[in-house]
Write a protein that binds this DNA or RNA. Structure first.
Lengths: 185, 185
DNA sequence: ATGTGCATGTAACTGGTTACATGATTCG
DNA sequence: CGAATCATGTAACCAGTTACATGCACAT
């Protein structure tokens, strides 16, 4: 399981640190983030929860309801937190997909402030590297290149640039916030 | 096979309209677009080519090389072009991933100019819709919301906005270019 | 000598999907 | 009266991955 992997399994585990939830709740919660991250279908969500339970990373509280399937509220266990921590602390792999970064960003509140900053800085470095490669490619390719490819390249370049700008902004915000909090304002 | 699907199968088929290539060539070509689209591993690329062949959508020319595995150059067939056209002309599904759009964009040169513009406009509409939803969500959520979620939301918002700007730019470029070409400059 | 590029392929696995089954309740 | 929401789950399937096997040529 190389770092920077998308892995809904760990992401779900992470969501449970914020609060205990049922599978249904998780799906609902993920809907609002679906653009960035996507939400898994029930057909993969429920089995994932089952294996997390079987592996002792979560516990269930079964809340019965009359003549309806009972709600099953999952909570993360100590070992679960351990495993999650390890996953989070892996340095991101090169070329990690945006999704993977977004997942970790959502779980950011579980990081130390320093950890969060490091995460964002890692991402910045990766996007910068990619941006440089794209610019290089753009220089190399001449007039005769296919329209579609040129457009795709520009597209990637524009998105990478926008991401860089955003990342720089929040890095400075976070550093500020941290300075204020340690200074005690 | 719902529209807007990522489907390397069709994308590969599309690349072969630009020029006949071997599996190895395709992989190499895709490397430069890997950020946006990713490139499939050989373990899926070669089998895909085999099924394309079996289905009569491509043909192979086997170029033997002394004491080395022969190169296999694949070309798209008439039926292949037919199938590709159908795939391309499907309207994009709602919430189609960026990847899917990028793929179609790369194949853009096979579209009519009008088709290309329509593709980009479809994307614009989708991103705009998504952007609106995110803004709505941002309004709804109050101070007490978790930092990670707030960051993720801002992140999505920033990226969506950047994409909108870019899309608007090329839409107007394309419309200009089209006007010039039909006017005959 | 060691690894990187060329170039093909297969087999085992995995992480997801769709489609289905169940069944009450509430909204328009 | 039909559709959506709540809420769980299973089974069949699929598109991809990793890891492996083969083997020559060229550069460090």
């Amino acid at each position: 399981m190389p770092a920077g992997t998308v892995s809904f399994r760990h992401f779900i585990l992470g969501l449970l640190t914020q609060q205990p939830m049922s599978g249904y709740d998780i799906k609902h919660f993920l809907k609002s983030l679906s653009w960035l991250i996507g939400s898994p279908s029930f057909g993969s969500l429920y089995p994932t929860l089952h294996t997390l339970l079987k592996d002792g990373l979560v516990t269930v509280e079964v809340v019965p309801r009359e003549s309806k399937p009972p709600r099953k509220i999952y909570s993360i266990t100590g070992t679960g937190q351990q495993v999650l921590k390890e996953w989070i602390n892996q340095p991101a792999t090169a070329n990690a997909p945006l999704k993977a970064f977004a997942m970790r960003l959502v779980l950011a509140s579980n990081f130390s402030s320093a950890g969060l900053i490091e995460l964002v800085q890692q991402r910045r470095a990766q996007v910068a590297a990619h941006h440089a490669i794209l610019e290089q490619t753009a220089k190399t390719m001449e007039e005769e290149t296919d329209l579609g490819q040129r457009l795709a390249l520009e597209y990637g370049l524009a998105l990478a640039f926008a991401e860089l700008v955003w990342l720089d902004n929040i890095i400075s915000d976070l550093i500020h916030a941290k300075a204020n909090s340690t200074t005690g304002s």
